[in-house]
Amino acid sequence: MARHKNDILQGTLVLLVLKTLDARGPMHGYAITSHIQRVSSDLLRVEEGSLYPALHRMTQDGWLEAEWGTTEKNREAKFYTITTAGQKQLALEEESWTRLRTGVTRVLRYA
């Protein structure tokens, strides 16, 4: 599986996307970007281009389902919904994130 350099973010990107969709229900890609940016008070900025490969990958893994729909502005957009498998994955990702953060924090504190 070809990995790209900006995958550094991809691990957390998956977590963020899953969390967003889990909390907010079906959304299109642009809304996901805006949501993450807004909720994180602009601390996190999704690299917009890399969002779509990630979304497609997650769809393939069965974590998301995609469907075409219309926005309020009457534009056609692809809406993503989290699946049960996605929710399980979210739990796993959250747990490993917590572990990572605890670990990193400890290292920073005691090293």
Binding site: A2, H4, G49, Y52, P53
Partner: peptide, 13 residues
């Protein structure tokens, strides 16, 4: 970023 490149990556997926 590059529309073509990102498109290609997505399609590849």
């Amino acid at each position: 970023g590059s529309l073509a490149y990102q498109g290609e990556r997505t399609r590849e997926r």
